[in-house]
Amino acid sequence: MCKLPQRCLLTGLVSLFVFSLVSASALPTAELIYQVGKKESSQASVIGKISDWLFGAKNNEDNFTMISGVAVDSADNIYLADTEKGRIVALNPQGKALARKDIGAGILKSPLGVALDRQGNIYVTDSALNQLLVFNSSGDVILAKSGADAKGGGLLRPSGVLVDKLSGRIIVSDTGNHRLQVYDQAGKFLSFIGQAGTREGDLNFPTFLAQDKNGNLYIVDTINCRVQVFDPNFKFIGKFGNSGDAMGSFGRPKGIAIDSDNRIYITDSFFNGVVVFDEAKKPVLFFSGSADNKTSLSAPMGVAVNSRGELIVADSRNNRLDVFRINW
Protein backbone atom coordinates (compact mmCIF):
# COMPACT_ATOMS: atom_id res chain seq x y z
CA MET A 1 0.00 0.00 0.00
CA CYS A 2 1.11 3.60 -0.49
CA LYS A 3 1.98 5.50 2.64
CA LEU A 4 2.55 9.05 1.42
CA PRO A 5 -0.57 10.95 0.48
CA GLN A 6 1.01 12.23 -2.76
CA ARG A 7 1.98 8.71 -3.80
CA CYS A 8 -1.54 7.51 -3.08
CA LEU A 9 -3.00 10.23 -5.23
CA LEU A 10 -0.60 9.45 -8.07
CA THR A 11 -1.28 5.71 -7.96
CA GLY A 12 -4.96 6.47 -7.82
CA LEU A 13 -4.78 8.70 -10.87
CA VAL A 14 -2.75 6.23 -12.87
CA SER A 15 -5.02 3.34 -12.10
CA LEU A 16 -8.05 5.47 -12.89
CA PHE A 17 -6.51 6.32 -16.25
CA VAL A 18 -5.73 2.71 -17.07
CA PHE A 19 -9.16 1.63 -15.98
CA SER A 20 -10.87 4.10 -18.25
CA LEU A 21 -8.62 3.16 -21.17
CA VAL A 22 -9.35 -0.52 -20.77
CA SER A 23 -13.04 -0.11 -20.20
CA ALA A 24 -13.45 2.50 -22.94
CA SER A 25 -12.34 0.08 -25.61
CA ALA A 26 -14.65 -2.62 -24.30
CA LEU A 27 -17.81 -0.57 -23.88
CA PRO A 28 -20.70 -0.96 -26.31
CA THR A 29 -22.68 2.07 -27.46
CA ALA A 30 -26.36 2.64 -28.16
CA GLU A 31 -27.61 4.31 -31.31
CA LEU A 32 -31.20 5.45 -31.86
CA ILE A 33 -32.37 4.13 -35.22
CA TYR A 34 -36.03 5.08 -35.33
CA GLN A 35 -39.06 6.06 -33.32
CA VAL A 36 -42.73 5.23 -33.65
CA GLY A 37 -45.35 7.48 -32.09
CA LYS A 38 -45.20 11.08 -31.01
CA LYS A 39 -41.93 12.73 -31.84
CA GLU A 40 -39.85 14.92 -29.59
CA SER A 41 -41.34 18.41 -29.47
CA SER A 42 -38.22 20.08 -30.89
CA GLN A 43 -38.12 18.42 -34.27
CA ALA A 44 -34.75 19.62 -35.51
CA SER A 45 -32.92 16.30 -35.48
CA VAL A 46 -31.97 14.50 -38.66
CA ILE A 47 -33.35 11.30 -37.15
CA GLY A 48 -36.65 13.07 -36.56
CA LYS A 49 -36.78 14.25 -40.16
CA ILE A 50 -35.86 10.86 -41.53
CA SER A 51 -38.40 9.09 -39.39
CA ASP A 52 -41.07 11.64 -40.39
CA TRP A 53 -40.20 11.01 -43.99
CA LEU A 54 -40.26 7.25 -43.48
CA PHE A 55 -43.34 7.03 -41.34
CA GLY A 56 -45.22 10.21 -42.13
CA ALA A 57 -46.93 12.51 -39.72
CA LYS A 58 -48.58 10.89 -36.76
CA ASN A 59 -51.69 8.95 -37.62
CA ASN A 60 -54.05 6.93 -35.52
CA GLU A 61 -51.84 3.84 -35.54
CA ASP A 62 -49.00 5.55 -33.81
CA ASN A 63 -50.99 7.86 -31.62
CA PHE A 64 -50.21 6.06 -28.39
CA THR A 65 -50.84 7.08 -24.81
CA MET A 66 -48.46 5.39 -22.39
CA ILE A 67 -46.93 2.25 -23.81
CA SER A 68 -46.11 -0.47 -21.29
CA GLY A 69 -45.20 -3.93 -22.60
CA VAL A 70 -43.65 -4.77 -25.98
CA ALA A 71 -43.04 -8.12 -27.66
CA VAL A 72 -41.73 -9.25 -31.04
CA ASP A 73 -42.79 -12.33 -33.00
CA SER A 74 -40.50 -14.59 -35.04
CA ALA A 75 -40.94 -12.32 -38.07
CA ASP A 76 -39.90 -9.28 -35.98
CA ASN A 77 -43.39 -7.78 -35.96
CA ILE A 78 -43.86 -5.64 -32.87
CA TYR A 79 -46.80 -5.91 -30.46
CA LEU A 80 -47.23 -3.11 -27.97
CA ALA A 81 -49.61 -2.48 -25.08
CA ASP A 82 -51.07 0.99 -25.61
CA THR A 83 -52.02 1.21 -21.98
CA GLU A 84 -54.17 4.32 -21.69
CA LYS A 85 -55.94 3.57 -24.94
CA GLY A 86 -56.68 0.03 -23.79
CA ARG A 87 -55.49 -1.87 -26.85
CA ILE A 88 -52.67 -3.94 -28.30
CA VAL A 89 -51.25 -2.57 -31.53
CA ALA A 90 -49.28 -4.68 -34.02
CA LEU A 91 -46.56 -3.09 -36.14
CA ASN A 92 -44.36 -4.46 -38.89
CA PRO A 93 -40.57 -4.58 -38.31
CA GLN A 94 -40.24 -1.04 -39.69
CA GLY A 95 -42.80 0.27 -37.22
CA LYS A 96 -45.69 0.61 -39.67
CA ALA A 97 -49.05 -0.55 -38.38
CA LEU A 98 -50.02 -3.96 -39.67
CA ALA A 99 -53.26 -4.07 -41.63
CA ARG A 100 -55.37 -5.55 -38.88
CA LYS A 101 -57.64 -4.23 -36.22
CA ASP A 102 -56.31 -3.38 -32.80
CA ILE A 103 -56.41 -6.27 -30.38
CA GLY A 104 -58.55 -6.01 -27.27
CA ALA A 105 -60.05 -2.59 -28.01
CA GLY A 106 -63.20 -2.23 -25.94
CA ILE A 107 -62.11 -5.04 -23.61
CA LEU A 108 -58.79 -3.95 -22.16
CA LYS A 109 -58.62 -1.21 -19.52
CA SER A 110 -54.97 -1.13 -18.52
CA PRO A 111 -52.95 -3.59 -20.61
CA LEU A 112 -49.38 -3.81 -19.29
CA GLY A 113 -47.62 -7.01 -20.37
CA VAL A 114 -47.64 -8.63 -23.82
CA ALA A 115 -46.25 -12.01 -24.86
CA LEU A 116 -46.64 -14.20 -27.92
CA ASP A 117 -46.54 -17.93 -28.56
CA ARG A 118 -45.57 -19.86 -31.69
CA GLN A 119 -49.23 -20.15 -32.77
CA GLY A 120 -49.57 -16.38 -32.93
CA ASN A 121 -51.72 -16.09 -29.81
CA ILE A 122 -51.31 -12.87 -27.84
CA TYR A 123 -51.04 -12.95 -24.03
CA VAL A 124 -51.96 -9.75 -22.22
CA THR A 125 -52.07 -8.78 -18.55
CA ASP A 126 -54.51 -6.07 -17.55
CA SER A 127 -53.74 -4.34 -14.26
CA ALA A 128 -57.17 -2.74 -13.92
CA LEU A 129 -59.16 -5.85 -14.81
CA ASN A 130 -56.71 -7.93 -12.72
CA GLN A 131 -56.71 -10.52 -15.46
CA LEU A 132 -54.60 -12.44 -17.90
CA LEU A 133 -56.29 -12.46 -21.31
CA VAL A 134 -55.26 -14.56 -24.28
CA PHE A 135 -56.33 -13.48 -27.77
CA ASN A 136 -55.97 -15.59 -30.89
CA SER A 137 -54.43 -14.01 -33.95
CA SER A 138 -57.81 -12.76 -35.13
CA GLY A 139 -58.32 -10.94 -31.85
CA ASP A 140 -60.89 -13.18 -30.15
CA VAL A 141 -60.51 -13.84 -26.44
CA ILE A 142 -59.67 -17.52 -26.03
CA LEU A 143 -58.77 -17.46 -22.33
CA ALA A 144 -59.40 -15.09 -19.41
CA LYS A 145 -57.90 -15.84 -16.00
CA SER A 146 -58.35 -13.90 -12.78
CA GLY A 147 -55.81 -16.02 -10.94
CA ALA A 148 -55.44 -19.39 -9.27
CA ASP A 149 -58.73 -19.37 -7.41
CA ALA A 150 -61.14 -17.11 -5.57
CA LYS A 151 -59.57 -17.75 -2.14
CA GLY A 152 -56.61 -15.38 -2.07
CA GLY A 153 -55.24 -16.69 -5.34
CA GLY A 154 -56.44 -13.79 -7.44
CA LEU A 155 -54.21 -11.55 -9.52
CA LEU A 156 -53.51 -8.03 -8.26
CA ARG A 157 -52.16 -5.54 -10.80
CA PRO A 158 -50.52 -8.24 -12.96
CA SER A 159 -47.78 -6.82 -15.20
CA GLY A 160 -45.18 -9.04 -16.87
CA VAL A 161 -46.20 -12.15 -18.79
CA LEU A 162 -44.09 -14.81 -20.47
CA VAL A 163 -44.73 -17.97 -22.44
CA ASP A 164 -42.08 -20.52 -21.47
CA LYS A 165 -40.10 -21.36 -24.61
CA LEU A 166 -39.52 -24.93 -23.46
CA SER A 167 -42.84 -25.98 -21.96
CA GLY A 168 -45.39 -23.47 -23.26
CA ARG A 169 -46.40 -22.72 -19.68
CA ILE A 170 -47.72 -19.21 -19.02
CA ILE A 171 -45.95 -17.23 -16.30
CA VAL A 172 -47.64 -14.10 -14.97
CA SER A 173 -46.18 -11.50 -12.65
CA ASP A 174 -48.78 -11.06 -9.90
CA THR A 175 -47.21 -7.72 -8.99
CA GLY A 176 -49.46 -6.52 -6.16
CA ASN A 177 -49.28 -9.93 -4.48
CA HIS A 178 -45.47 -10.24 -4.68
CA ARG A 179 -45.44 -13.57 -6.52
CA LEU A 180 -45.71 -15.12 -9.95
CA GLN A 181 -48.49 -17.44 -11.08
CA VAL A 182 -47.82 -20.32 -13.46
CA TYR A 183 -50.45 -21.86 -15.73
CA ASP A 184 -50.32 -24.63 -18.31
CA GLN A 185 -51.14 -23.91 -21.95
CA ALA A 186 -54.84 -24.52 -21.35
CA GLY A 187 -54.85 -22.00 -18.50
CA LYS A 188 -54.91 -24.50 -15.64
CA PHE A 189 -53.19 -23.07 -12.56
CA LEU A 190 -49.98 -24.95 -11.72
CA SER A 191 -48.06 -23.07 -9.03
CA PHE A 192 -46.97 -19.84 -7.40
CA ILE A 193 -43.36 -18.65 -7.49
CA GLY A 194 -42.02 -16.52 -4.63
CA GLN A 195 -43.61 -14.65 -1.74
CA ALA A 196 -43.38 -11.14 -0.28
CA GLY A 197 -39.98 -10.37 1.19
CA THR A 198 -36.40 -9.44 0.59
CA ARG A 199 -34.55 -12.77 0.95
CA GLU A 200 -33.31 -14.77 -2.01
CA GLY A 201 -36.32 -16.01 -3.93
CA ASP A 202 -38.65 -13.50 -2.25
CA LEU A 203 -40.31 -10.83 -4.34
CA ASN A 204 -41.28 -7.20 -3.71
CA PHE A 205 -43.54 -5.99 -6.52
CA PRO A 206 -42.15 -8.17 -9.34
CA THR A 207 -42.88 -6.68 -12.78
CA PHE A 208 -41.49 -7.75 -16.15
CA LEU A 209 -40.10 -11.19 -17.06
CA ALA A 210 -37.72 -12.69 -19.61
CA GLN A 211 -36.13 -16.00 -20.45
CA ASP A 212 -32.55 -16.59 -21.55
CA LYS A 213 -31.55 -19.06 -24.24
CA ASN A 214 -31.01 -21.76 -21.62
CA GLY A 215 -34.59 -21.43 -20.46
CA ASN A 216 -33.78 -19.66 -17.18
CA LEU A 217 -36.41 -17.23 -15.94
CA TYR A 218 -35.42 -13.63 -15.12
CA ILE A 219 -37.72 -11.71 -12.81
CA VAL A 220 -37.42 -7.96 -12.38
CA ASP A 221 -37.96 -7.64 -8.62
CA THR A 222 -38.79 -3.95 -8.88
CA ILE A 223 -38.99 -2.68 -5.30
CA ASN A 224 -36.11 -4.92 -4.21
CA CYS A 225 -34.12 -3.18 -6.99
CA ARG A 226 -32.71 -6.39 -8.39
CA VAL A 227 -33.18 -9.10 -10.96
CA GLN A 228 -33.60 -12.68 -9.78
CA VAL A 229 -32.81 -15.70 -11.91
CA PHE A 230 -34.65 -19.01 -11.60
CA ASP A 231 -33.81 -22.23 -13.45
CA PRO A 232 -36.41 -23.91 -15.71
CA ASN A 233 -37.76 -25.76 -12.64
CA PHE A 234 -38.25 -22.39 -10.93
CA LYS A 235 -35.40 -22.88 -8.44
CA PHE A 236 -33.58 -19.69 -7.42
CA ILE A 237 -30.10 -19.67 -8.98
CA GLY A 238 -28.92 -16.06 -8.77
CA LYS A 239 -29.58 -12.37 -8.53
CA PHE A 240 -27.95 -9.10 -9.53
CA GLY A 241 -28.44 -5.38 -8.99
CA ASN A 242 -29.21 -3.27 -5.94
CA SER A 243 -30.68 0.10 -5.06
CA GLY A 244 -28.43 2.96 -6.14
CA ASP A 245 -27.18 5.09 -8.96
CA ALA A 246 -23.92 3.36 -9.81
CA MET A 247 -23.50 1.35 -12.98
CA GLY A 248 -25.52 -1.84 -12.54
CA SER A 249 -27.67 -0.47 -9.73
CA PHE A 250 -31.32 0.46 -10.14
CA GLY A 251 -33.88 3.05 -9.13
CA ARG A 252 -37.02 1.48 -10.51
CA PRO A 253 -36.11 -1.48 -12.77
CA LYS A 254 -39.05 -2.51 -14.97
CA GLY A 255 -38.72 -3.98 -18.46
CA ILE A 256 -36.30 -6.76 -19.37
CA ALA A 257 -35.12 -8.38 -22.59
CA ILE A 258 -32.41 -10.95 -23.25
CA ASP A 259 -30.77 -11.32 -26.66
CA SER A 260 -29.54 -14.49 -28.36
CA ASP A 261 -26.11 -14.02 -26.76
CA ASN A 262 -27.69 -13.88 -23.28
CA ARG A 263 -26.99 -10.17 -22.89
CA ILE A 264 -29.54 -8.48 -20.68
CA TYR A 265 -31.33 -5.14 -21.16
CA ILE A 266 -33.26 -3.57 -18.30
CA THR A 267 -35.23 -0.34 -18.31
CA ASP A 268 -35.25 1.93 -15.27
CA SER A 269 -38.27 4.22 -14.96
CA PHE A 270 -36.72 6.23 -12.14
CA PHE A 271 -33.43 7.01 -13.88
CA ASN A 272 -35.17 7.10 -17.28
CA GLY A 273 -32.73 4.82 -19.01
CA VAL A 274 -31.65 1.35 -20.03
CA VAL A 275 -28.97 -0.67 -18.25
CA VAL A 276 -27.12 -3.22 -20.39
CA PHE A 277 -25.42 -6.29 -18.90
CA ASP A 278 -23.11 -8.59 -20.82
CA GLU A 279 -23.53 -12.37 -20.77
CA ALA A 280 -21.52 -12.56 -17.55
CA LYS A 281 -24.08 -10.18 -15.99
CA LYS A 282 -21.50 -7.42 -15.81
CA PRO A 283 -23.04 -3.96 -16.36
CA VAL A 284 -21.47 -2.45 -19.48
CA LEU A 285 -23.69 0.44 -20.53
CA PHE A 286 -26.34 2.84 -19.28
CA PHE A 287 -28.10 5.11 -21.74
CA SER A 288 -31.04 7.43 -21.37
CA GLY A 289 -31.64 8.44 -24.96
CA SER A 290 -29.78 9.21 -28.13
CA ALA A 291 -26.14 10.19 -27.94
CA ASP A 292 -26.91 13.71 -29.20
CA ASN A 293 -29.40 14.16 -26.35
CA LYS A 294 -32.12 15.08 -28.83
CA THR A 295 -34.16 12.28 -27.41
CA SER A 296 -34.38 11.28 -23.81
CA LEU A 297 -36.42 8.44 -22.43
CA SER A 298 -39.24 9.21 -20.02
CA ALA A 299 -40.28 6.45 -17.64
CA PRO A 300 -39.37 3.57 -19.97
CA MET A 301 -41.31 0.37 -19.33
CA GLY A 302 -41.21 -2.74 -21.50
CA VAL A 303 -38.33 -3.67 -23.77
CA ALA A 304 -37.94 -6.35 -26.44
CA VAL A 305 -35.08 -7.45 -28.66
CA ASN A 306 -35.63 -8.52 -32.27
CA SER A 307 -33.75 -11.02 -34.41
CA ARG A 308 -31.31 -8.32 -35.54
CA GLY A 309 -30.44 -7.61 -31.92
CA GLU A 310 -32.19 -4.21 -32.02
CA LEU A 311 -33.77 -2.97 -28.85
CA ILE A 312 -37.39 -1.82 -28.88
CA VAL A 313 -38.03 0.36 -25.85
CA ALA A 314 -41.49 1.40 -24.64
CA ASP A 315 -40.79 5.07 -23.95
CA SER A 316 -43.88 5.20 -21.83
CA ARG A 317 -44.36 8.82 -20.83
CA ASN A 318 -43.16 10.03 -24.22
CA ASN A 319 -45.91 7.94 -25.83
CA ARG A 320 -43.65 6.27 -28.34
CA LEU A 321 -41.33 3.38 -29.13
CA ASP A 322 -37.63 4.12 -29.45
CA VAL A 323 -35.62 1.55 -31.37
CA PHE A 324 -31.91 1.36 -30.61
CA ARG A 325 -29.02 -0.54 -32.14
CA ILE A 326 -26.39 -1.64 -29.66
CA ASN A 327 -22.92 -1.55 -31.19
CA TRP A 328 -21.01 -4.25 -29.33
Binding site: T175, T222, F270, N318
Partner: peptide, 30 residues
Protein backbone atom coordinates in the same frame (compact mmCIF):
# COMPACT_ATOMS: atom_id res chain seq x y z
CA UNK B 1 -33.74 13.79 -15.93
CA UNK B 2 -36.44 16.00 -17.39
CA UNK B 3 -38.45 14.57 -20.26
CA UNK B 4 -41.56 15.52 -22.13
CA UNK B 5 -44.79 14.11 -20.88
CA UNK B 6 -48.33 14.10 -22.18
CA UNK B 7 -51.06 13.61 -19.68
CA UNK B 8 -54.63 14.60 -19.01
CA UNK B 9 -56.09 16.11 -22.11
CA UNK B 10 -52.77 16.42 -23.91
CA UNK B 11 -51.05 18.99 -21.74
CA UNK B 12 -47.33 18.84 -22.41
CA UNK B 13 -45.18 19.14 -19.38
CA UNK B 14 -41.93 18.08 -17.87
CA UNK B 15 -41.99 15.80 -14.88
CA UNK B 16 -39.76 17.49 -12.40
CA UNK B 17 -39.36 17.00 -8.70
CA UNK B 18 -42.02 14.88 -7.09
CA UNK B 19 -44.09 13.84 -10.11
CA UNK B 20 -41.43 11.74 -11.75
CA UNK B 21 -40.84 9.96 -8.47
CA UNK B 22 -44.53 9.20 -8.02
CA UNK B 23 -45.09 8.17 -11.63
CA UNK B 24 -42.22 5.68 -11.51
CA UNK B 25 -44.55 3.51 -9.39
CA UNK B 26 -47.99 4.87 -10.24
CA UNK B 27 -47.93 3.48 -13.76
CA UNK B 28 -50.36 0.60 -13.23
CA UNK B 29 -47.71 -1.94 -12.27
CA UNK B 30 -46.35 -1.31 -8.77
Amino acid sequence: SAGAVTLHGGSMATPANSSAVCLSCHDGSV
